[in-house]
């Protein structure tokens, strides 16, 4: 209990006593994490948008003949047994005709005199989110082919290839840029904390001489690093929030060519907690690395 009180007192006292060094560390963490939060915000919003796009990924099975109600229900039940199926929707010839009519807009009069029977009825099969890829779609088609009544499929092959490539690129950029940002942040924070520890190397030496164990010497520094990291992360989130409201919301909406500003969202509470945790861990690890060098009994 005495030690815990000592560690808390030392941590707070040291931050109060070295306001410049403390501010430098918090400022560094705040700027570095603001970049990270900003980047995460953009990636997550792009992901959200592509998730909306991916809802269009579906397999359409065109039917040669209009099935009886019983047959149709049997097919739907069969398809719903397949893995990764989200929804099966029957589009009758009339519904297909109405859609086509609506799509033609002012040119709809081209359809005048034609009957809905010119268009085939179809089954629109939506995949669950995890299977919305070329691979998932092809697996479904393989299963559908086992039913001899199904032989005409459409699933937007080119669009799927482009979607897969885009998602791969997005993930790659996310991992590379995110990883780079985290390492750069750790490097900057570690160096800033190294400076603060270097400025207090006499204290480390004296503590060692009077019989403090390495853990006793390191704990207040690590607690200080973690606290500064968490405060810095809090400031980063606040800064990111301000940027989001004043610039990012409109900017991202324009960038992602979405008309609805409401679809551009700030980081969820889980991500915000994650950024605070990253700040805390970066501060902690950032102190630990130079301490290993300076605290040697």
């Amino acid at each position: 209990m005495n030690r815990l009180r000592y560690f808390i007192q030392r941590t707070l006292f040291s931050m109060r006593q070295n306001p410049l060094l403390c501010s430098a560390t918090i400022g560094t963490v705040a700027i570095a994490l603001m970049l990270l939060a900003f980047f995460t915000l953009i990636v997550l919003n792009i992901q959200n948008l592509t998730r909306e796009w991916s809802q269009d990924i579906q397999v359409v099975v065109y039917l040669d003949q209009v099935p009886s109600e019983q047959k149709l229900q049997q097919w739907i039940d069969e398809i719903q047994q397949y893995p990764d199926i989200e929804r099966v929707n029957y589009v009758s010839q009339q519904q297909a005709f109405d859609r086509f009519h609506a799509r033609l807009g002012q040119n709809a009069d081209l359809l005048e005199g034609l009957m809905p029977e010119i268009l085939p009825a179809s089954l629109e099969i939506s995949l669950s989110e995890s299977a919305r890829s070329r691979k998932g779609t092809e697996s479904l088609i393989d299963l559908l082919k086992s039913n001899s009544d199904f032989h005409d499929f459409r699933y937007g092959q080119e669009w799927l290839d482009r979607y897969d490539a885009f998602m791969f690129l997005l993930k790659l950029i996310g991992i590379m840029a995110g990883g780079f940002l985290i390492f750069a942040t750790l490097f900057i924070i570690s160096n800033t904390i190294k400076l603060t520890i270097y400025a207090r190397r006499d204290e480390l030496e004296i503590m060692g001489l009077i019989g403090a164990t390495p853990m006793f010497i390191k704990t207040p520094f690590m607690a200080e690093g973690a606290l500064q990291g968490a405060i810095g992360a809090g400031i980063a989130l606040a800064g990111c929030h301000v940027l989001y409201y004043f610039f990012l919301k409109n900017g991202l909406a324009a960038l992602l060519t979405t008309t609805s500003i409401e679809s551009i969202k700030f980081l969820s509470i889980e991500y915000q907690a994650g950024i605070i945790l990253i700040g805390l861990l970066l501060g902690f690890t950032g102190s630990l690395l130079p301490l290993r060098k300076f605290v040697r009994l």
């Binding site: 001489l209 009077i210 019989g211 403090a212 164990t213 390495p214 040697r296 009994l297």
Partner: peptide, 14 residues
């Protein structure tokens, strides 16, 4: 080891 060095130093004044 470093922990025992610390304990030893508690018996030494500098």
């Amino acid at each position: 080891n470093s922990r025992n060095v610390a304990l030893l130093r508690r018996d030494i004044g500098f």
